[in-house]
Amino acid sequence: MGQIIISGILLGGIYAIVSYGLTLIFGVIRVINFAHGSLLMVGMFMAYYLSKGMNLNIYLMMLIVVPLMFILGVLIQKYLLSKVINEPDMQLFVTFGLLLLFENVMLAVTKGEFFSLDMNMGTIPIGSLVLDWGRLINLVAAIVLAILLLLFLNHTKIGWAIRAVSQNRYAAGIIGLRVERLYILAFGLGSACIGIAAVLLTPIYTIFPHVGFNFVIVSFAVVILGGLGSIPGALAGGMIIGLLESLSGYLIAPELNQIVWYLLFLLVLFFRPAGLFGIAGSEEGGVK
């Protein structure tokens, strides 16, 4: 049973780290990013190919993948989403189009084959329980990244500006903030967060063009459960869903491991649409 709880917490770290980018982009720009999963997939392929090509440790690829993903995010916001900034429906279509584009380009490039890093990093035994390094590193990174994002949003001028824009972009514009630039920055940051997640997940999972799909529904659930735009909410939401999935897989049946958190997700949508950690009414709110 202890092993199951450990598995759940480690899985929670994975779900949290894939959700930061989504919650940031949604919280600030108010666009539901359908391309979230495919950006994760693109990041994983980048990390895989770079690490193989340069024969360097996968975690070092953070130094290249994260800036590249930041630039990709900036380009998407600057040249695509900003053109339809006042048309929420069109924004959905744009991100959906990007999903199709990324997945199909990667299908064409990889011919639908599967790729994995053979990295046996070993395990850490604690009594009768075992932790694996890949997921433990990811969990630590998820907590550290949450703290850094919070510090950035709450204690820097740019962070304040981003929060101001997310709370009311018209008012932010009136007091002289450059809304479009901040949007571009926010999408870049969200995309960079996805890049961090991608590098951390590459040693754990098999990579193929639809791999993002395995994470996209759960990351939407994490973000809504934790409160839209809330970084601590995403961390907590990830943990809750990870634990629920692990426990229900073990205690009920592996084939039903998602039923319980789907139910919780529905209940939250009904009774607390702001999320478990959101302030009531903050579904209209911003990033925290």
């Binding site: 598995s7 779900y15 395995n214 592996p254 998602q258």
Partner: peptide, 15 residues
């Protein structure tokens, strides 16, 4: 033990 092939975690199956 049946399981969902699209699951992000199969630790319950293994355990």
């Amino acid at each position: 033990i049946p399981y969902d092939a699209a699951s992000a975690d199969l630790s319950s199956v293994v355990n």
